Simulated assay, not measured.
Amino acid sequence: MATHPAPKAIDALINQALAIEDEQAQEAGALGFMARAMVQATLPHRAVDGTYFERKNGAFTLSLLASPKIGLPYGSVPRLLLAWVTTEAVKTKSRELELGDSMSAFMAELGLKPTGGANGSITRLKNQTRRLFSATVAASYEDGEQIADMGYRLADKSVLWWHSKDPEQAGLWKSTVTLSEHFFNEVIDRPVPIDMRAIKALKQSPMALDIYTWLTYRASYLKRPTVIPWASLALQFGSDYTRLRDFKQAFLAELKKVTLVYGQVQVEATELGLMVKPSLTHISKREAP
């Protein structure tokens, strides 16, 4: 059953939305980016049995393959990591990225607070960072007339000198990730502009993060109202739901959170699917590169 945001959570989202409207993302130092492939199809929302996962968006299919010893990335943390590495790659034009002087400093960049324990944010970050950067991605496009396939690792190398018991402590060496050449080129080739304040506001929900990045991407090129069928949205955002009505209920609950933060977007739930209308992007044209 879908959950609804608690009153305090709604108040927080509204306050964050007002702050976003008051100041442009670039002026606030919050202009970020996301790789298009990761917007068109998304990562798992929750833990997946096995080492293979795929999502579809029309003729586009994104699949992930993981080492059995490490597992597939899932949840909000890999999405926060992807937004951060994409933004840093666009800004620095470098494949090798430094992840901060300490684990605590890097977590602050992602909008996370260090908490210990088996289920704490420190454990989740270390676990999901390894899962994400060791995963192999395959993307394919097939429309009946043409077929295109490509595959790549997200990172050639990741070295994490983080102190789990003392996240404030700086390591003797820098923690770094070196993006694979293919993923780096994908990242810097027309990335999707996003507002990092919105990403941090929605960080508790992987589906809300996916809906936000997808809607601001669609708004950048949509020319007329378009209805996306619920079945198509389920393949793109929630292939782990067995019943379509359960997916629809969950999607609409998360959509409410997104529209609180992204007030300019114009959407309407219909019996057939979600109608997306031409809207202002969350990043103005003058801010986008």
Rank of each mutant, 00 (worst) to 15 (best):
Q169E: 14
E98V: 15
L72Y: 07
K157R: 15
G151W: 03
D143I: 07
G58K: 06
M107G: 08
N127M: 12
K277V: 09
A234R: 06
R36F: 11
T123K: 13
W173F: 15
I199Q: 05
A2E: 05
A135Y: 01
A201G: 08
A138M: 14
K165T: 13
A41H: 00
S175L: 10
F184A: 07
Q204D: 15
R79L: 05
S284Y: 03
E271T: 14
M1E: 11
Q24T: 12
L112C: 00
F184Y: 10
H163Y: 12
A89H: 09
Y241T: 04
R36V: 12
K126A: 14
L62W: 06
A9K: 15
I194Q: 03
G111E: 04
G238N: 01
L62G: 02
F247G: 00
G120F: 07
Q24F: 06
E88K: 10
A219Y: 05
P193G: 06
T259R: 12
V137G: 00
K277Q: 06
G273C: 02
A135P: 12
D195V: 00
R124D: 13
H182I: 15
K91C: 02
K223G: 11
F251W: 00
L82I: 09
T242D: 14
G151A: 15
P191Y: 06
V192W: 05
Q24I: 12
I70L: 07
L132M: 15
A234M: 00
L18S: 06
K113I: 07
E268L: 11
A219I: 01
E96H: 10
E168K: 13
I199H: 01
